[in-house]
Design a protein around this nucleic acid. Structure first.
Length: 334
RNA sequence: GGCGCCAUAGCCAAGUGGUAAGGCAUGGGUCUGCAACACCCUGAGCCCCAGUUCAAAUCUGGGUGGCGCCU
């Protein structure tokens, strides 16, 4: 059951629409349309579109596509910088912008496919600041290299069994991060988790976009990837390589697969296929993530002949949901 | 037409007498701290037939299919 911001008790709560779903389903396009018809502004929830200069491979909206709509949290991190961006930074920034959007009485529309960012933001998770330290990280990494995954996992199990139990012992990356967090802050991640739940801040309406037909989704993904190559993905990656983009930026789909091609280790057709496969796998992981959220109202994009019909269906769904709040609460307000 | 080589899961592939490695893909999943990340789980009885043998994907013969070379 959703609370409502018309309730005087919850004055601070912010109505927000979240457009979620796997990649290549038209989330961006839908969000922009809704921003226009619902007098809103879009806030991106995408861990890669935050980077400047990663354009071809990331399917960011172009000026034309935006058609004047405001689209936040895109293109603001320099991919050349190694300063670590994470959920914590994202949540801080997104919250700031959303509050601003609310102040000017426009409707915030969150749009993106990074489930971790979306959930952390909308559940108003509280993160610690300054929780990483490159030196400590390096030392822990050395430990991993010398003693192995099992050893560091055992170490984590000793100091923070709760966090350790959340992932498999082979997941060295998560193990290292948890150890680093402890070494830097003196807190266990599980402590932080316990402290992180704050009062409710958002009233989200979740709209999910997906394909009913897997084949159609694959077709869409493939043609998007083909288009990226036509639009100069290889050139963009070459530049990324020359300018030494950060490891995280280079781990983006479309970038990591093209690097071996530029180095002459893979053929072009092979590379294109690889990017398509990665994208499909990504879409699948996204779906796995979003499936857990039972509040999402799913729309099959392949149920619609034309985009306008989808937009108007989503629109009426959103309006209906907003009204539910009013009706439910109004009597208690008076 | 002749000679040679090959045939193992959707693909690549190891195994050459003792009961089918591995990788990729696929499907399912985990995840509030690098998340377009990282990680977990997931399959065949070996082209067909006949034979040798206690035992055959492995040896023999035949067939079928593919590749190469020769006339």
């Amino acid at each position: 059951m959703r609370y409502c911001n018309y309730d005087v008790e919850n004055e601070g709560e912010i109505d927000i629409l979240a457009v979620v779903g796997p990649t290549a389903t038209g989330k961006t396009k839908l969000a922009i349309s809704l921003a226009k018809s619902l007098e809103g502004e879009v806030v991106s929830a995408d861990s890669i579109q935050i980077y400047k200069d990663l354009n071809v491979g990331t399917a960011k909206p172009t000026e034309e596509e935006l058609g004047g709509a405001n689209y936040h949290l895109v293109n603001f991190v320099d991919p050349r910088s190694n300063s670590s961006f994470s959920v914590a930074s994202y949540v801080t920034l997104a919250k700031e912008i959303i509050v601003k959007i609310k102040k000017i009485e426009r409707y915030p529309i969150l749009c993106g496919g990074t489930g971790l960012y979306i959930d952390s933001l909308l559940n108003n998770i509280n993160f610690f600041e300054n929780t990483s330290d490159l030196n400590i990280r390096r030392k822990l990494k050395a430990f991993l290299d010398i003693r192995g995954k099992d050893y560091i996992y055992a170490a984590l199990t000793k100091i923070d069994p709760e966090t350790a139990s959340k992932f498999h012992k082979n997941n060295a990356k998560r193990t290292l991060r948890a150890l680093e967090f402890f070494a830097v802050t003196g807190y266990r991640i599980s402590d932080q988790n316990a402290l992180s739940r704050r009062e409710k801040l958002f009233n989200p309406i979740y709209v999910g976009l997906k394909y009913k037909s897997k084949e159609d989704h694959i077709k869409k993904i493939n043609s998007r990837v083909d288009k990226m190559f036509k639009n100069g993905l290889v050139e963009e990656v070459r530049r990324a390589l020359d300018e030494n983009y950060s490891k995280i930026a280079m781990s983006a789909i479309g970038y990591k697969e093209v690097v071996p091609y530029i180095k002459g280790e893979k053929s072009l057709p092979e590379t294109i296929e690889r990017v398509k496969i990665s994208t499909r796998q990504y879409a699948k992981r996204q779906m796995t993530w979003f499936k857990r959220n039972k509040e999402i109202k799913w729309f099959n994009v392949d149920d619609y002949q034309n985009f306008e019909d989808l937009v108007s269906d989503v629109e009426s769904y959103v309006k209906k949901e907003k009204n539910k709040c009013k009706i439910k609460v109004e009597p208690t307000v008076s």
